[in-house]
């Protein structure tokens, strides 16, 4: 299995551990990721607020490079995925738009090369069974709420999962030996850049999600978006302080949980880069694995 790989800007900065864990996990699952050379920013989430054509042209350049290689593009970041998917569909559905876009990016893009969410690739192309057979350090007794975020499974007609009650990450957690915890905030929006640009709006949105996650009694949150990650992880203490809460709720990229379950050293996955301490969970999983080994 081979895909073009589009990490996106966040994965080389605030979301660097998503990039690290994605590459490690893909490697150990035998999925070849060909990083699009000299990829550019897809424009999320500013271009589409400024100019529709620019919002399509920026992702189109990356997709065009992948199309030249004959590869679909695996995209970890939910925001990048949403912009790329929108571009792919609009280009494929309109000959006129296809011509315009190709003229603007000065490359050919026909919509043949598809934007695929990394989660979709793992769960639906590789399959849960294959993943399950490779698990050697199951996420035993780890209760995880899956936070898909708003963009990963929308719009419903283009999505790879149910838009209201998506299941793929929950099923993945289960395949990794963990315990998925159902909740009602799987697709509630965390406010994206609002936490930075207008915190009085962004913070209450983050608070709602963290409170709901905490109420489920889960040990941690799994996510698939670097923007969600920075809102829920980096800003957790800040938001907690504002609302008088101590959430202490570790947040993982789903790829990090996959990496741990596949037996990759957690440190190699970049989890020390998190703001909320995850050592408790790592220790708990190690102990469980130790018990299993001795037993």
């Amino acid at each position: 299995m081979k895909y073009a790989y589009y990490p996106g800007c966040s994965l080389s900065s605030t979301g660097v551990e998503y990039d690290i864990s994605t590459k490690k996990v893909a490697k150990s699952l035998g999925i070849e990721l060909w990083e699009i050379p000299e990829w550019n920013c897809c424009g999320a989430s500013s271009a589409h607020l400024t100019d529709h054509l620019l919002a399509l042209a920026l992702p189109a350049r990356n997709l065009a490079i992948a199309e030249e290689k004959g590869l679909d593009v695996a995209i970890p970041c939910a925001a990048c995925y949403a912009r790329c998917k929108a571009t792919e569909v609009e280009v494929r559905n309109s000959k006129e738009m296809q011509e315009t876009i190709s003229a603007v990016i000065e490359r050919q893009y026909t919509g043949k090369s598809q934007a695929r969410a990394l989660l979709d690739v793992f769960v639906n192309d590789l399959g849960l069974e294959s993943i399950n057979t490779l698990v050697n350090k199951p996420l035993k007794d780890l209760k995880v709420v899956s936070y898909y975020g708003c963009l990963l499974v929308r719009p419903p007609k283009l999505g790879f999962d149910d838009a209201e009650d998506p299941q793929s990450m929950d099923k993945l957690i289960e395949a990794l030996g963990g315990t998925p915890v159902d909740w009602a905030f799987k697709t509630e929006c965390c406010g994206a850049a609002h936490a930075t640009t207008k915190s009085e709006v962004g913070f209450p949105m983050i608070e709602k999600i963290l409170t709901a996650a905490k109420e489920t009694g889960a040990d941690c949150i799994a996510t698939a978006c670097p923007l969600c990650m920075s809102n829920l992880d980096m800003r957790q203490t800040q938001v907690g302080a504002k609302y008088g809460q101590n959430y202490s709720l570790p947040v993982f990229y789903f790829t990090e949980l996959m990496g741990i379950a596949l037996g990759i050293n957690p440190q190699e996955l970049g989890i020390s880069k998190h703001f909320v301490d995850v050592s408790g969970i790592v220790k708990k999983l190690n102990e469980a694995a130790g018990r299993r080994d001795t037993a």
Binding site: E38, N40, D51, L54, A57, L58, R61, V104, I105
Partner: peptide, 17 residues
């Protein structure tokens, strides 16, 4: 990125339109 000329061109082309 090395090919940043391409991205600059995208901006320029969008402005042209």
């Amino acid at each position: 990125i090395k090919d940043n000329g391409e991205v600059k061109k995208i901006f320029a082309n969008v402005r042209k339109r």
